[in-house]
Lab assay of single mutants.
Amino acid sequence: KNAAQIVDEALNQGITLFVADNRLQYETSRDNIPEELLNEWKYYRQDLIDFLQQLD
């Protein structure tokens, strides 16, 4: 998997990933985040941060 796929997957589930103060953050109206997504975000944290910062 790559960062773009993970960001896309999150968006499809109503979750927006973004970077604030060099930390990976998310916004969602969901009550909870599936644990497998959280684990994936932790595992790919630096890739996601790098990818999202390139988009800014």
Rank of each mutant, 00 (worst) to 15 (best):
E35K: 09
F51I: 03
N39Y: 10
E35L: 13
L17C: 06
L55Y: 12
V19M: 05
Q13W: 13
I15R: 00
Q25A: 08
V7Q: 03
S29F: 10
K42I: 13
W41F: 10
E9R: 08
L38E: 06
I33H: 02
Q13G: 06
L52G: 00
D50E: 13
D50P: 04
Y44V: 02
Y26I: 06
N22I: 07
Y26F: 09
K1Q: 04
L48P: 00
Q5N: 06
F51G: 00
L55N: 12
F18M: 06
L52F: 10
G14M: 05
Q53W: 06
W41A: 01
Q54S: 11
Q13N: 10
T16V: 14
L52P: 00
Q5P: 01
L52H: 00
G14V: 02
E36Y: 13
D21F: 06
R30A: 09
Q53M: 14
I49Y: 06
L37V: 06
A3R: 02
L24M: 03
Q54L: 11
Q5R: 12
V19K: 01
A3I: 10
Y26L: 03
I49H: 03
Q5H: 05
Q13F: 14
N2T: 15
I6S: 01
N2C: 14
V19P: 03
L48H: 00
R30W: 06
N22E: 08
D47S: 12
E35S: 09
P34I: 03
R23N: 14
A10T: 02
N32G: 08
W41E: 01
Q53P: 03
I6V: 07
S29W: 11
Q46Y: 07
D50S: 10
A10S: 04
N22P: 01
E27A: 14
E27L: 13
Q5W: 06
Y26W: 15
F18L: 07
D47Q: 14
W41N: 00
E27F: 13
Q46N: 09
K1P: 04
E40C: 06
Q54R: 13
E36A: 12
Y43S: 10
N39A: 13
I6G: 00
K1L: 04
N32H: 14
A10I: 02
N12R: 15
Y44P: 01
F51Y: 15
A3P: 13
D47N: 10
I15A: 02
D8H: 15
A20T: 12
Y44N: 05
R30F: 06
L48K: 00
Q25R: 11
F51N: 01
K1A: 04
F18H: 06
S29G: 08
N22F: 06
Y44W: 07
Y43P: 03
R30L: 13
E27Q: 12
E9I: 04
G14A: 04
N2R: 11
L37E: 01
Q53A: 10
K42T: 14
D50G: 06
R30Q: 08
K1C: 05
A20C: 15
Q46E: 11
D31Q: 12
Y26N: 02
F51W: 10
Q13P: 00
I49C: 06
I15L: 03
R23E: 15
I15V: 09
R30V: 09
I33R: 00
L55K: 13
D31V: 11
Y26Q: 02
N32I: 13
E9F: 07
D56A: 13
D21L: 05
K42Y: 14
A3S: 04
F18Y: 12
E9V: 04
Q5E: 07
D47P: 07
L52T: 00
K42G: 09
D50R: 13
L48M: 03
L17I: 06
N22C: 14
E27N: 12
T28H: 06
E40Y: 05
Y26E: 01
L11P: 01
P34V: 04
D47T: 13
D47M: 14
T28A: 06
A3F: 03
L55F: 11
G14N: 06
D31Y: 08
R30E: 07
Q46C: 09
E35Q: 12
L17Y: 01
Q54E: 11
